Each structure stands twice: as structure tokens, then as C-alpha cells.
Computed example of a mutant assay.
Amino acid sequence: MKNVWLINPYGTLPNEGWRNYRNVNLAESFSDKGFNVRWFIASFEHRTKAARTENIVFDSFSSEIITTPLYRKNISLSRIYFEYVFGKNLISYVNKNNLELPIVIILVSPSLFYASLIINFAKKNNIKVVIDVLDLWPEHFITVLPKPIKAFSDFLFSPLYYLRNKTLLKADGVVFCSRDFEEKICNKISLSSKLVSYIGTETKDTITKKCYEVVHIVYAGTLGESYDIQKIIDLAIIYELKNKKVVFHIAGGGPLKESVYQASLSLSNLKFHGSLHPVKLDALLSMCHIGLASYASDSSVSMPLKFYDYLCNGLIVLSSLKGEVNEIIESKCVGFNYDANNINQLEGIIDSLLADPKLLKNMSNKCFTLGKNYDYKKQSNEFSSFVIDIL
């Protein structure tokens, strides 16, 4: 049987209580096509920092735990050291256990600080490499820079841009999880073999019937400084004063978790759910009418998972993101775009929807229909077929 290796220290395994990660979906697709799949992953989970100690054989792949040092801060020197050690220990692990080599490696990007180790190993052993671009580094780092320094970010991060471009040019194929990412990369380098394959989500055959006596508005995702969470709390205050039949729901975890929790104690129309199991999150989304994609103005996010989840549950999307999401919302009439930090504009959009229940229902059906395009099985099948064509 032909072997495929997925190399990504991050992500979550099926037994860790989160939704199926991109690699899990890819493993299912490759397994269905007759491949044997291994996923090389770090010895702790990125979000919770919970330890992993044993390799597990799942239905479509086996996990290979690579010993790595722990990091506490996501942007730190210890994170860089973690990545380097992951790459070095992975190659030692393969040699020590005398693993049968694959015909192709799917290497995640970002992988700035270990990709060269993997690619050199692959080239030495005549193994094809396909890079899966899930996020943009160093662009992500720019969002945490002080404002006076941001103007010099291109110069400051030029070695990292060079390193990323060099890595991508060595790959046999590159897959992007959004057209925004493809455009940003391909404006700088020319790639002969590339594909856009969205992460997607599990879609449904029918939309859940919604009650419109009270309109439910939800934000589901990370509770951090880059996500404009305070504006959602401010909206809840505004609509409680208006005495409108609107309930705001916030689900997720992160640095602002305590602030959201405290706000929910004093606001009758703000419900905080914490981090939800995928089944419970789906139940929450299915009863809601509007989904918020509230991001800071300098966010590097392109196609967030919440966008797919909102659509497949028939939620109208209100988004502050630029780029592809913005264009889809406008061209497909599945929501409204607003300027980040402009709470008055967002309030006006919500008021217009509250005043027109028929519009709410019609747009909900459009969202549900469009969501079917982002079925994860369809997207994963396109990804695996692209890889097989390269072999």
C-alpha cells in the first residue's frame, strides 16, 4: 500500500474533543483512495497545551507523536525553538523506527523553522512534497507589532519572507485554503502547480426551522484582542437599552473569556457558553439567525471556519473582514460587510434585519444553499486528487 505522510505539529486529533481538523479530513480522503496515512504531530496540543504520550491508530490514519519542548506564548522565541526541535526529532524518529517511507509528504505552512529539514529529507529520498498553506507567517506577526514599527514590517521580516518563498518554490505542489492567500503569495513568486482547497465543514441536507419571535445573534470563535469582542458586548448593552427582542451568544475561549463572562452576568441578553463540543456548538448555531465575524482592522484572517459553520446553518453573516469573505458576502447576498470598529454601522445593519423578518428568512435560505459548496468531503477530495495527479 502506498504511504502518505501528513506533517503538522499543530491541530487536534479526533479524540481531543474538537471538530475534525484539516488533516483528519485529508486522511479520510486519502484512506478512501487506498493510501496508508500517518500524521506526525507534536507531543502536546497547541490550544490547551495538554500532553500527548501515545501513538493512536484511528480509522483512517495513525498518529506519530514527536517529542517537543513546550511553549506558553504563541508568538515567542520558545515557539521558534519548538518548531526546529519538532523537525529535527521527526527525522530522528523516522530513522530510529525504520518507518517505511511515503511517496508524498503533505507539509503544513506555516512551517518556517522546520520546513527546510523536511524538504531536504524528502528530496534526498525522492519523496514528493505538497505544501498546505493554512496561515500566513510572517504576516500574522505584524498584527502584534506596535503601530510605529508596523510601517517597517516588510524590512524587519524580509528574512522570513525569503525563507517562506524559498520553501514554497521547492515544493512539487502548493495548496491554499483561500484565494486571498494564493493571491498574496503568487504576487511575489510564480508557482507552476497550485490549488485552492477550502477547509470547509460538514454540511446538512436540510436547514433547521428557526423561530423569529426573538432574533439570536452569535459569535463563535477565539476570544482575543484580534477579534473585536468588546464591540459585541457593547452591542448587547445597546440592545438591552432599546428593549429589543435580541439575544447575543458568545461561544469560545481565550484571553478575553473572563471579560465576556463578567459582562454576561450583568446583561440579560448576553449568553456566554464557553468552549463548546462540536455537537453542542452545532445545536447553538442551528437556532441562531445571524453570525458575527468580528475582527480587528489589521487581521490577517482570510476564510475563518466560522464562516463555513454559519453558512451551513443558514446564518446571515455580518463580517468586518476584507478580501474573499467580503467579496462572497457581497456577490452572493449572504450577509453584510461593515468597517471594523464601526459599531454604529453594525447596529444599523442589525436594525434593518430586525425590521424585515422576510429578508431574514430569504437570506437564511441563500446562506444554507451556498454553504453546500464548502462541504469538507468535497474540498478534501479535490485536495487528494490534486496530490495524486502530481505523483
Rank of each mutant, 00 (worst) to 15 (best):
P159C: 10
N342M: 04
D234P: 01
I329L: 15
P14L: 02
T143A: 15
P9W: 02
Y114M: 06
N341H: 10
K378V: 09
N125S: 02
S294T: 15
I118G: 01
K231M: 13
S178P: 05
D298L: 14
E258T: 03
K271T: 12
H289S: 07
L315H: 01
S197A: 15
H216G: 08
K366I: 06
L391K: 05
T48L: 00
S380K: 05
G254M: 04
I103W: 12
L77M: 10
F44H: 14
E347I: 04
H140T: 15
F82N: 07
G224I: 08
F176I: 01
K166Y: 10
I250Y: 12
L315R: 00
G253F: 12
V24R: 01
E139P: 01
I118R: 04
V260F: 12
I127H: 10
P357W: 10
L359P: 11
S192V: 00
N269M: 08
Y308E: 12
K96T: 12
N25A: 12
N337E: 09
N97H: 15
I232R: 01
K124F: 11
F155M: 02
L353T: 03
G323H: 09
I238D: 09
V174S: 02
H46P: 00
V129G: 10
V133T: 04
G335W: 08
W137I: 06
C288Y: 06
F307D: 14
W5V: 08
L256T: 03
A296M: 08
K147G: 03
F82Y: 11
T48D: 00
G323S: 09
L318M: 12
I105V: 08
V57I: 14
N165H: 12
F336G: 03
L321M: 11
G224N: 07
V196Y: 06
L134A: 14
F40I: 05
Y198T: 02
D172V: 05
V175K: 01
S43M: 07
T68Q: 06
K366D: 12
K244S: 11
K377T: 05
L270F: 14
V130N: 07
N337F: 07
L276I: 09
Y162K: 13
K366S: 15
F82G: 02
I7Y: 04
K231A: 09
G173C: 03
Q345R: 04
S190Y: 04
Y198I: 01
L99Y: 15
L6I: 15
V130C: 11
D298E: 13
I103N: 14
G371R: 03
K209R: 09
E330M: 13
V104T: 15
Y219C: 02
K257R: 03
S192G: 00
E16L: 13
A51L: 10
V108W: 06
G200V: 01
I66W: 09
Y81Q: 06
G274N: 11
P357Y: 11
V387D: 11
T143N: 13
F141H: 14
I237K: 11
L191C: 00
S297H: 13
S63R: 08
D228P: 00
Y219V: 06
L169P: 02
Y21E: 03
Y376K: 11
L360F: 06
L169G: 02
H216L: 11
I41M: 04
S352F: 11
T48F: 00
G348Y: 13
S158A: 01
I75V: 14
I142T: 15
